[in-house]
Computed example of a mutant assay.
Amino acid sequence: MLNAFAVLIDGLVYAAYLFIVAIGLTLIFGVMKILNVAHGSFFTFGAYGAASAVGIYFNRGLPEAGGYLLMVVLAMALGLVLGLILERGIMRWVYGRDEVVMALVTYAAFLILEDVVILIWGPGSYAAYQPLLSAGNIEIGELILSNYDLGLIAVAAMLAAACYWGLKFTRYGRLLTAVIFDRETAAAFGINVRVVYTVTFVIGAMLGALGGAIMAPKIAVTLGIGVEVIVLAFAVVAIGGMGSIEGAFAGALIVGICRAATVHLFPQVELFVIYAVMALVLMIRPYGLFVRAQPRKI
């Protein structure tokens, strides 16, 4: 019973991490039909920015709560700046091109940003252990849980609820839904599709950077973390259905629970299980679990 509870908690923590990383990627694809490889760079900048900031902040003995706020604010600011630069400076020139071309453009941007990371932070690794340490632990029976991990689950749940509310009950959400369903018809009815594109890309970039910031205390912030993240995010959105927020949520839960069970029971196949789950789902549902209905144009 205790082992099953440990699997559940570990699965939820990993699923929360995957969902926060994948939601920005699936949002951009759903609206703009861009497979944004540069999303891994947003994660990397968020992680490096958070690691640098919290190291300076906590070493000065400032209030701990402010350190968590600093992580979030700095990550969102980095995502905002990077998103605007990439969307206004590069992506707007390739709208309407083949999806493969746009994916290659974002891959080129990813390679450039990886070099920018080296120029800013150097090739060394960074550690942002202070928020994880200051959060403390909680004991449930014989199981010791990190309060930071529980907070990560809460953040993912609030983010999922906020995205659902925003898409269903706000004006921008309705505009976004119209553009997702049929961008040509939405433009014909007076919706400024370019503005929707810009806002969506920036929001996706901010979410990617946020994922990097909140995961920085749990990982070694080093070169290459963006590559691993983008592969995992692609796996999650492929399972759930490209462009589906519900799919990203379901995909993250499935992968998180399966990966946690494998770590506890068969740790030697941990790296294999994520892609095995993806292959199994895509064999049954080639477009993912929550693929959106596509309009038929006549």
Results as ranks from 00 to 15, higher is better:
206 M>R: 02
139 E>R: 15
169 F>H: 15
57 Y>H: 03
217 P>E: 06
285 R>M: 07
208 G>F: 03
112 I>C: 12
34 I>L: 10
212 G>Y: 02
280 L>S: 15
89 G>C: 08
134 S>D: 08
82 L>I: 12
140 I>T: 13
203 I>C: 06
194 R>V: 13
14 Y>Q: 09
211 G>A: 13
257 I>E: 09
248 A>Q: 04
22 A>S: 15
138 I>P: 01
208 G>A: 08
169 F>K: 15
42 F>Y: 15
251 G>P: 14
150 L>Y: 09
216 A>Y: 00
251 G>F: 03
269 V>N: 13
260 A>W: 09
291 V>R: 14
117 V>C: 02
267 P>S: 13
41 S>F: 02
95 Y>Q: 09
35 L>R: 09
37 V>R: 01
240 G>V: 01
111 L>M: 14
165 W>P: 00
46 G>R: 10
76 M>I: 15
30 G>F: 12
46 G>M: 08
158 M>C: 14
284 I>H: 02
198 T>G: 04
90 I>H: 01
73 V>K: 00
176 L>R: 10
165 W>V: 00
190 G>C: 08
232 L>W: 08
292 R>V: 06
194 R>H: 13
11 G>A: 07
287 Y>G: 01
219 I>Y: 02
225 I>C: 10
209 A>L: 02
277 V>K: 09
200 T>W: 07
104 L>E: 04
134 S>Y: 10
233 A>K: 03
84 L>Q: 09
220 A>E: 14
4 A>Y: 11
160 A>V: 01
81 V>A: 06
139 E>L: 08
